[in-house]
Design a protein around this nucleic acid. Sequence first.
DNA 1: CAGCATCCATGCCGATACTG
DNA 2: CAGTATCGGCATGGATGCTG
Lengths: 125, 125
Amino acid sequence: MNWDVYNEKCPTRIVLDRIADKWTVLIVVALENGTKRFGELRREIGGVSQKMLTQTLRGLERDGLVTRVVYASVPPKVEYSLTELGRTLVHIFESVREWAERNIEDVLKAQGDYDTKAASEAPDE
Amino acid sequence: MNWDVYNEKCPTRIVLDRIADKWTVLIVVALENGTKRFGELRREIGGVSQKMLTQTLRGLERDGLVTRVVYASVPPKVEYSLTELGRTLVHIFESVREWAERNIEDVLKAQGDYDTKAASEAPDE
DNA sequence: CAGCATCCATGCCGATACTG
DNA sequence: CAGTATCGGCATGGATGCTG
């Protein structure tokens, strides 16, 4: 099967859509070294609403990247951890991180130059 | 500098936010083997509005990933191409593609199982 | 504690009309 | 041809209140 990116069903596109998500990245990283409870994740990942955390975790569970274990205790306790597949995802982040750290200076500089140029061309205001 | 992903300024996050974008991927791929004009890109990438194409190209130009050359002719002609930096981006897509093609079956199967299970647990309509 | 349901603001994006 | 400007629908995601 030879997928091309113009197809919505292209695996690369599907995967990118998932890992592109802000909370997805943070959750995977947070779970990278071990199981965590819902509340722990919430605290560790600052600024995530309960809704988004739940929603993102459901998506990851659906994709087979995260497992969800519910303990029938009172108060309830739910533990999340990466599946084996989920752990392999970490490698992707590493290659992105590698590119990012190597090139971020250039990107930021380009942005600065671009913005400066734009500003100098604007007549006034 | 030791960045962590919880920081909005984390290079990995910045880069992910950019390459995650649907049109960004398609544009980079379209430019992968050579310079293209605005209209060519528009036609080659089906379904992109003129607004989004312009907007995405501007972002890529600002980041130093794409160069924009305007010819002062009538009718106007504008050519886009990847910068050297932009071309290195392609490697990232390759590592994502590699992961995606290797694991997409598992992900789709997990989704199927998850949905089936959810459906069987739903009492009725 | 973990999560669902609801409401609502914001912002993205497509469609359309106009310009150098 | 390759844009810019504007309007509006619609999805995304935050805040709040309620439940097993």
